[in-house]
């Protein structure tokens, strides 16, 4: 079947099998490999992206169901060479080690901060409770999201993409 959707502000069209999962469409058809493919059972949350402004687990959505919808992936967080405060927070607070869960964590964090600019630690932990991290014990992820909430205007001072961090 033919699908058309807007991903990170750009329109894409493709012929797909209806059984194709959205995560594979995004990664394999569009080459946007920032969205990770993890447990495949809607448990781990590394495949979280936004569909029509709502975070969803893209391993449990068919690409066909995303036809005509608006998708936002982790690649869209950085704009004009400036990291999103959430990305900056993960860097500042060492919010990742292996990095596998990070794209999903950041997409959920961005959505949380868009709807609650000053979340408590409990609210942050609740928001990411559908996502697994096997490295950090979550402490630094929570700190990273707190950092982002305290530096929402940090884009001006944030690290430029590609800049070497001393």
């Amino acid at each position: 079947m033919h699908v058309k959707m807007i991903v990170n502000g750009k329109e894409y069209e493709s012929e797909i099998e209806p059984r194709l999962l959205l995560v594979h469409f995004i990664r394999d058809e569009l080459g946007l490999t920032g969205t990770h493919w993890g447990c495949d059972t809607s448990n781990c949350g590394t495949c979280v992206l936004w569909m029509d402004g709502i975070p969803v687990k893209s391993c449990t959505v068919l690409a066909a169901m995303a036809n005509g919808r608006v998708i936002r992936t982790v690649e869209d967080l950085e704009t004009g060479g400036q990291l999103d405060p959430v990305q900056q927070g993960f860097m500042e607070m060492h919010g990742l080690q292996c990095g596998f869960c990070t794209p999903g964590m950041m997409m959920t964090a961005r959505w949380l901060l868009d709807h609650n600019s000053n979340p408590s630690e409990t609210e942050i932990r609740e928001a990411i409770s559908g996502q697994f991290c096997r490295c950090t014990g979550y402490e630094n992820i929570v700190r990273a999201i707190r950092w982002a909430s305290e530096h929402q205007d940090a884009s001006a001072e944030s690290t430029k993409v590609g800049e070497v961090v001393a």
Binding site: S42, I54, P55, V56, K57, V61, A127, G130, Q131
Partner: peptide
């Protein structure tokens, strides 16, 4: 029931 992201859907 499940988790916040699953409950979105």
């Amino acid at each position: 029931i499940a988790d916040p992201i699953v409950r979105n859907r």
